[in-house]
């Protein structure tokens, strides 16, 4: 109920904004005139967006913002990170406060249509999972009948949980929590048998426990959570820029272009696809309203998709996520950048 009211107000508000924004003209021109990209990010999510002790933002979503800034403004540091909460994120985008929203937001039907957003692509395929104490003896989510479950309110995970338990004809008692930190605390204190949120979040949470070996993440993934950057509906060129920047990062990994060999490849590569991507031949950038080397700069900003993944959330980091669904299509994953031609 609360959610539908909120969605309703958000939708009405977006509608008003949509009319205002339509007259504003091109987002690209605004960004270039301002010489700064306003990027909406999470106020703090491990691995995806977090300020360090000096206030510099790092993370998986942050890297995407920097790549877009590098493509559009030739400088990956010209980004103003606007922290947004779960409540303010979509209004911040539709009111024009941010140019792009890279805030681990799930691409859903209603957000795409009703909220008048455009998702430019998917930068992380997530899904909802469960974590339980090992000594509980549970090995599958199907055995959670009657369990108490810690669940963050006002998120899609709350709805997924209800759907999943109804579909499997099981009962559960929800323990409502407000934030991830509170959820961990409740789970550690034994207020709930299981903790559920996106699998990436569970992995990060488990890694931060004093005794990670005593907790297991159940194999079932009960939902699809394609997380991606969103832009305002109606400015297709800007949506293309964000979407193809993401595609360039993915394609770069596929063709073996990394931040280390990019200079060399842009001069000497014989692969026509790489040449087109890096702007050595053809003028693909002009079709977006950018210069020829836009994609090259985007890749130089933080490396290709694989490098960004490894640096922020990959197996070498404390979060230790495997590529899984987020591997290239050639490696059995879902990443599949359309051809640059």
């Amino acid at each position: 109920m609360k959610k539908s009211v909120f969605l309703g107000t958000a939708a009405a508000a977006t509608l008003i904004a949509g009319m205002g924004v339509a007259q504003e003209g091109s987002t690209l021109a605004q960004v270039q005139e301002r010489d700064e990209l306003n990027c909406g990010v999470n106020t703090g999510l491990v691995g995806f967006a977090a300020p360090d002790a000096n206030g510099n933002w790092t993370g998986f979503d942050v890297a995407l913002c920097r790549a877009v800034a590098a493509a559009v403004l030739s400088d990956s540091s010209k980004v103003k990170f606007v922290p947004t909460t779960g409540q303010t994120r979509f209004t911040a985008l539709s009111s024009g406060e941010v140019d792009v929203l890279a805030r681990n937001s799930t691409w859903t039907y209603s957000r795409d249509t009703d909220l008048k957003l455009d998702f430019a692509g998917v930068n992380y395929y997530d899904g909802q999972g469960f974590m339980v104490r090992k000594d509980l003896g549970v090995t599958s989510a199907k055995e959670l009948d009657g369990a108490t479950i810690c669940i963050q309110t006002g998120t899609t995970t709350e709805l997924n949980l209800a759907d999943y338990f109804r579909a499997n004809q099981m009962d559960y008692t929800p323990v409502n929590i407000d934030s991830n930190a509170e959820g961990e605390q409740q789970y550690m204190a034994g207020a709930c048998d299981a903790y559920t949120t996106d699998a990436s979040g569970l992995a990060a949470t488990r890694a931060a426990f004093a005794d990670p070996e005593n907790h297991i993440i159940l194999p079932e993934i009960i939902s699809k959570e394609p997380l991606g950057p969103a832009v305002r509906h109606g400015d297709n060129n800007w949506g293309d820029i964000v979407g193809w920047t993401l595609n360039a990062l993915v394609a770069a990994e596929e063709y073996g272009v990394t931040s280390k060999n990019i200079e060399e490849l842009s001069k000497s590569s014989n692969n026509p696809e790489v040449q087109r991507l890096l702007g050595s031949t053809d003028e693909l950038g002009a079709m977006l309203g950018l210069d020829a080397e836009w994609a090259k700069r985007a890749i130089q900003a933080g490396g290709n998709y694989g490098e960004i993944f490894a640096a922020n959330i990959g197996e070498q980091t404390p979060i230790g996520l495997a590529r899984g669904l987020n591997a290239q299509w050639t490696q059995g994953g879902l990443l599949y950048a359309p051809p640059f031609r």
Partner: peptide, 27 residues
């Protein structure tokens, strides 16, 4: 003011601190 995306010391700032990999799990 945490609800409008400003970094108040109690919640937003503490959550931002918790979002770094070094301090995740501190409550």
């Amino acid at each position: 003011v945490t609800f409008v995306g400003l970094y108040d010391p109690l919640k937003s700032m503490s959550d931002a601190v918790r979002a770094s990999t070094s301090w995740k799990g501190i409550y």
